[in-house]
Design a protein around this nucleic acid. Structure first.
Lengths: 133, 133
DNA sequence: ATTCTTGCAAACCCTTTGCAAGCTA
DNA sequence: TAGCTTGCAAAGGGTTTGCAAGAAT
């Protein structure tokens, strides 16, 4: 019942490589398309499985698009952080919010809650997209 | 090409009513199930369409679950607030966070974002459930 | 009477899974 | 060799859509 060993394969490296180059959120389908463009032949199911493993190991951040509910993945930096996402073009900025962390902890404590965690996402229209109007 | 007129129907009222009573995020499927329990016979597709309209008109907030990518809806409260949810028993407390509002606005501004909105949910284990261990 | 709405079922999209063949350790 | 991985295709789960019948204005 222990976790199965993790083998290194051409496909997993490929997925990892694409994720490294594109420093942005990208869906499994996007990733798969990009692999095909490069001539790398990797099955879609394999891409999903690779991403699943990466997410389990905490090597990528996962979040859900508001439209279509696609899951998007991105290599994640270490440390707890939140995201500022452009709802027009999807551009993402990692932001930190010490005040938010403190607030969440305090709110939890005030109400007698333990093991407090929080989810924060900030949405807006980025400068580039605003200018485009 | 102007938007079609919006008619008031029994089904839409029913959806709206459920949304009013349950002051929490709820998926279309949940909502549909609750309607059936009450004896209200509303088609699933209709529930989806009603929620779509409500979201378009800005009458409900929409966000995506991390698992399964379900969309969850909640009546937009007039007063903006967040929730502290017990992940054990589901108890929910409405909380306010002026500091969080301020932080979100500032973060957005710093990065040149406009029309900034945010989603914040705090999870934990409530006092009662903690005691139960 | 007109035109929006509803319901049902089929269609869609993203994602997961079963299974035989391929590859890594 | 043993057993994780891959690919394909089929299955799954949520959401959307086409179309004829039903309501609201």
């Amino acid at each position: 019942m222990s976790a199965p060993a993790r083998r290194s394969t051409k496909q997993r490296s490929a997925v990892s490589a694409v994720l490294d180059e594109a420093d942005a959120f990208m869906s499994a389908q996007d990733l798969h398309a990009r692999l095909r463009e490069r001539g790398e032949n990797v099955g879609l199911a394999t891409v999903y499985r690779a991403l699943q493993v990466l997410a389990e190991d905490g090597d990528v951040d996962v979040l859900r698009t508001d439209d279509g509910g696609e899951a998007v993945y991105r290599r994640c930096s270490t440390g707890h952080h939140h995201h500022l996402v452009c709802r027009r073009c999807g551009a993402t900025v990692e932001v930190e919010g010490p005040q938010v962390e403190a607030w969440a902890r305090r709110i939890g404590a005030e109400h007698g809650f333990t093991a407090v965690q929080h989810v924060v996402e900030v949405f807006g229209v980025c400068a580039a997209c605003s200018a485009r109007d």
